[in-house]
Design a protein around this nucleic acid. Structure first.
Lengths: 249, 249
DNA sequence: CCTTTTAACTTGTTCAAACAAGTTTGTTTC
DNA sequence: GAAACAAACTTGTTTGAACAAGTTAAAAGG
């Protein structure tokens, strides 16, 4: 599926790590070896390895080598650094996803909404509330705002299916990137009404601003997650010893 | 400070974007122009731009160019993809940070602890509870476990100052990467006792496993954050249109 | 005037080469 | 035997080049 060679190499190596060809704590073959093995240039191989570093599969040490630090099977609900719709995520985790549209309307951004979403005041927007189910349980309450001049012709019927499919295949909008912020908020009456969260009175909130290829932010979505089913993964790399160089010799 | 050229270029461009030389929605000069301007090769420049993409400062479109999508001043408490200690983060945000050690002890990982932290059962560990203050308010409650054979000689006195400074400058341990997971949990009695969280009964929990250059996970830390002061930022990039190629013509 | 084609841009990918820098191992030297 | 040195690894950075692919605007054609 992926056309780029470095993506293919990344998939191959990822597969080998997951399947135990390169078990945890073990060193991978050196770049020189892998180049001969995979038939690629050093740059392309290193690009693939760089991806593996980013997702926390390996660590690299100058002069020493590349070590696998993969630990299998931590159930992932949310992957980082890549945009995924709810239905895509559900499918990847092999679970039954369903959605219900609670509200679909047109609004104009007032001062308060503009402040919250980042849209300019007075922008005409579509506003929709959707509830996402996983295995029959309501887990995510979505508030989404779409710029009307970008998401032209959006209807409640489309929202019942998949908004992104409509935007990408019908309107030929290319989604480029999405800025996301994770916070924790007090549950509102609306949250409690729909999410059935027991004795928890807070939930995980993922606010995202999504941009198209024209550089315009056309979507603001606030995903309010059931706290017991929220999980956000990340791998951080220490750039340089923050405490200056340890004295030599 | 950064030795690598691409890091310098990244800083230069980041600066220009923040200062308004390349204002939001505006296109950056083409690679060709920037190469001449900055005196570097195309690959090095592209590496710097790649970093800007990852932090959500710009978006690139094949055939069109690079557009600034920087939006100034959303106060950041947590940056993503890079390991930062509490004191470093506090300093970056120009706020007064302070810490208090509530507990320092030696423990051995039993079955339950091994399951939670990822250490092998029977591993001798240092266990410390620390409370982090920002501007006088207690905001973060840290539970940290360190492998005794790696963090040799760790004492309560060192924990009062900075554990990482000790590990890096005294023990010459190089911290490589850290796997982190963000979840939301019910507050325990201990949390409520120390964090003063009003009527919220949940908090944001960042669990992290940190690895050194020998590939051994030597630290497990669970950071329990006051919900009102927790913020986790991310920028996601859509890899390829998930719905197949839109039909031509 | 409008459409089509072409050319000149843009960014994306891949290769090759050279050097820098860190680590390991073997060798020499005392 | 122990320390110092040197060679042979490893990954990290930088440069240059070529081609692919997407976009834009000028040129050509009707």
């Amino acid at each position: 599926m992926p056309k780029a060679k470095y993506e293919q190499l990344y998939q191959i190596l990822k597969e080998k790590i997951e399947s135990g060809t390169y078990p945890p704590q073990e060193m991978l073959p050196s770049e020189h070896t892998l180049i001969a093995e995979l038939g690629c240039s050093r740059n392309t191989l290193r690009r693939a390895i760089g991806e593996l570093v980013r997702v926390g599969y390996v660590q690299t040490m100058q002069g020493k080598g590349v070590r696998s630090i993969y630990e299998p099977s931590r159930q992932t609900t949310f992957t980082l650094g890549t945009i995924e719709t709810f239905s895509e995520s559900a499918e990847r985790n092999q679970q039954r996803g369903a959605s219900k549209v609670l509200l679909f309307s047109s609004v104009t951004a007032d001062w308060q909404l503009a402040e919250k979403t980042g849209f300019a005041e007075g922008t005409p927007l579509f506003y929709t509330q959707r509830l996402h189910y996983l295995n029959g349980r309501p887990l995510i309450f979505n508030h989404s705002y779409f710029r009307q001049d970008v998401a032209q012709g959006l209807t409640r019927e489309i929202a019942e299916q998949s908004i992104y499919r409509y935007l990408e295949t019908e309107l030929h909008i290319s989604i480029i990137n999405s800025k996301r912020v994770v916070t924790v908020e007090k549950a509102t009456a609306l949250d409690l009404q729909h999410l059935d969260m027991g004795d928890c009175n807070c939930l995980a909130v993922v606010s995202s601003q999504t941009y198209n290829s024209d550089g315009v932010m056309f979507e603001y979505t606030q995903s309010r997650h059931h706290p017991n089913f929220f999980r956000f993964q990340d791998n951080a790399v220490r750039r340089s010893s923050a405490y200056g160089r340890p004295e030599e010799k």
